[in-house]
Design a protein around this nucleic acid. Sequence first.
DNA 1: CAGATTGGCTAGCGGTGCTAGAGTTCTGGT
DNA 2: ACCAGAACTCTAGCACCGCTAGCCAATCTG
Lengths: 192, 192
Amino acid sequence: MSIQARRERERAERERAIIAAARELAEAEGWDAVTTRRLAAEIEYSQPVLYSHFKGKDAIMAAVAVEGSGDLAVELAAARAAATDPRQAVAGIATAYADFAERRPALYDAIFNLPVALSFASQDTPVELARAFAELAETLRPFAGDDDLETFTETFWSGLHGLVTLMRNGRLRREEHERRLAILVDRFARLG
Amino acid sequence: MSIQARRERERAERERAIIAAARELAEAEGWDAVTTRRLAAEIEYSQPVLYSHFKGKDAIMAAVAVEGSGDLAVELAAARAAATDPRQAVAGIATAYADFAERRPALYDAIFNLPVALSFASQDTPVELARAFAELAETLRPFAGDDDLETFTETFWSGLHGLVTLMRNGRLRREEHERRLAILVDRFARLG
DNA sequence: CAGATTGGCTAGCGGTGCTAGAGTTCTGGT
DNA sequence: ACCAGAACTCTAGCACCGCTAGCCAATCTG
């Protein structure tokens, strides 16, 4: 039994190594630099080993995305906890969200942009993602008014997502970033 | 002279054919299906010919994006013209925008999502894009309040962009789409 | 008509994600 | 203790990608 246990342990260890390598490579050089060959070299195994852990490159990226959304959830929670009043909480969480996207573009891409099979708003949504979304929802609760909280949160979140993605692709004037964030917050964090 | 004129005409013709082929292929099967080999076969020339017209595949996609943004501008203008009052104009243009993204996902991607060297908000922005943005800005003008109109428009536009991209990537519940649009419009098209 | 220029072609380079099949190591029953 | 079979990892290669060097034929120039 013990031998089998060790095997499984080593296997799990290797799987973690793959995800870590993919994440580090992506954060350092972008997803284009994450090829199965480089990944295999990084973990010091041959390419086909990757496919014994993941169905394909997409699955590896999805695993990184799940891990990354945990980080996002933590940062959003911290921002919410640090806030003193409801309106400022919205401003704070919006800033935290934008900062995360700016600071870890590759991770953000994996979570939200890449056409990766990450299911959202369904039963099998990773708990990390659900937590991140819940942080947003709780922060917005005082301002949802008559609107359904989940739908309201989705809309605000879309605003944030649009801001960070369009800016990163050079579609928005960078110097106006804070002002745009302020406008978005102002429009969503008001009563009535 | 006339011979040279014919040559240039034929060359321009071929360039148009390349763009048209790329667009059709992308709309029919997605950008992944648009390879230089298929494109060359479509126009019945060899691959290197593409590179005598465009610097690379990105440049072809950028050309398609410019063309597509002309279409978008037209549709947005029509929606604005059809509106009866300012608030309804915002709702109408938002719907038109979302419809465009839904109906022509590949075109929308080329314009806004793909990391293509399309410059925005700068001197050399294609006029088509500037027109599309101007339609949005004019529609929003009555509601900008104290905010700078351009910045305000960018923020609203980001909201739209976030809604359509997140939904298309399966990150939002499709059945709530209209409600989210309504919330966004409601939050931006109000006075005071 | 000879030579230079143009323009399109074939062929190929170095890369991608992924996989078939061989070879090695380990496991468990006799 | 042995050996058949299972489990695992590797090498090698497939089909494709964007892109380009270098050849060859047609055209233009003097």
